[in-house]
Amino acid sequence: MQDLGYYNGEYGPIDQMKVPMLDRALYFGDGVYEVTYTRNHRLFALDEHIDRFYNSAGLLQIKLPHTKEQMKKLLEEMVRKVDDDRLFVYWQASRGAGAREHTFPEQGEACILMMIRPGRLKDLGEKVGLITLPDTRFLHCNIKTINLIPSVMAAQRAKEAGCFEAVLHRDGRVTECAHSNVSILRDGVFVTAPTDHLILPGIARAHLIRACKGLGIPVDETPFTVDELMRADEVIVSSSSVLCLGADRIDGKPVGGRAAQLLAALQKTVLDEFERETR
């Protein structure tokens, strides 16, 4: 099988799967999600993604129908059913299905959707362009909710500008990108925004912090500004699909390029970890 979909116990090719119109994901975006990648049919950082999935669901008071171990087993079984060994793996939980009312269903249980298709990590050697945009999202960015319209619009703006990502900021403070975390290298220090309610606690970001500690690179989890971003020795975008990607331009102006060896060491460390875990 080339790809595989799942919805509440039913399996099939993605383009043949159906989702009920009463699923609250459709009319409220009332749900949470996770994404990871595989190599050799092994899911990368699965425990961390599952923990964040359950944390997001808990913050929205969504009752999940499976234990963490059951969810992991289901994902692992799904991955083995697909022919390609390098896969994009997406799963989400909505609050359930019911009449369109803003308040929660009385005895609702989450609807689980999964989607698996061929997908590979981005080449870490590639340099990318970024743009900056005001962060107009809501104030629960730490929850990986499927309410993504502001991020969708920001990502489209970046695409139209010929760039990979949009860096968001609030009153000059850099938060994160449309679908990635953003960090900088400055004077040999890895600087990344704190995991407060304004950013998602990225799995790749956490792995980068761990890589820094292994390499003896100091880590500073404090807010930084757009001006500091533009003057940084390196600008780093991180997510489950890119791990650690360097930027060479923001808003059409050249950035980074002054700590290439440090960036390369970080990229090698996180890529080696991915390959060890998915061996």
Rank of each mutant, 00 (worst) to 15 (best):
L46E: 14
G216R: 08
Q2N: 14
I116N: 03
K81M: 15
C163F: 04
P65Q: 09
D227F: 10
D187I: 09
F53M: 14
Y90R: 10
Y27I: 03
K18T: 14
P194N: 12
G202L: 01
L4A: 08
M71I: 08
T145R: 00
G172Q: 06
Q2M: 12
D84S: 14
A260V: 15
N147L: 05
E165R: 02
P218Y: 02
S240P: 03
E160A: 09
F164N: 03
P13D: 12
K73Q: 15
Q267V: 15
E273S: 12
P20C: 09
E275D: 11
M1W: 01
L229I: 11
E277Q: 15
Y7G: 11
M17D: 13
L243A: 06
A158T: 10
E48Q: 15
R170K: 15
F190C: 06
P13R: 13
I250N: 00
A97H: 04
G252Y: 02
Q70V: 12
V219G: 09
A204T: 09
A161R: 11
L271W: 13
L215N: 08
D83L: 09
S151E: 00
P13V: 12
E273M: 13
M1P: 02
A247W: 07
L130H: 01
R95P: 02
P105E: 04
K73A: 15
E77P: 01
D15Y: 14
D85S: 12
D15T: 14
P134Q: 04
E273W: 14
L198R: 12
I50E: 07
V82Q: 13
K144D: 04
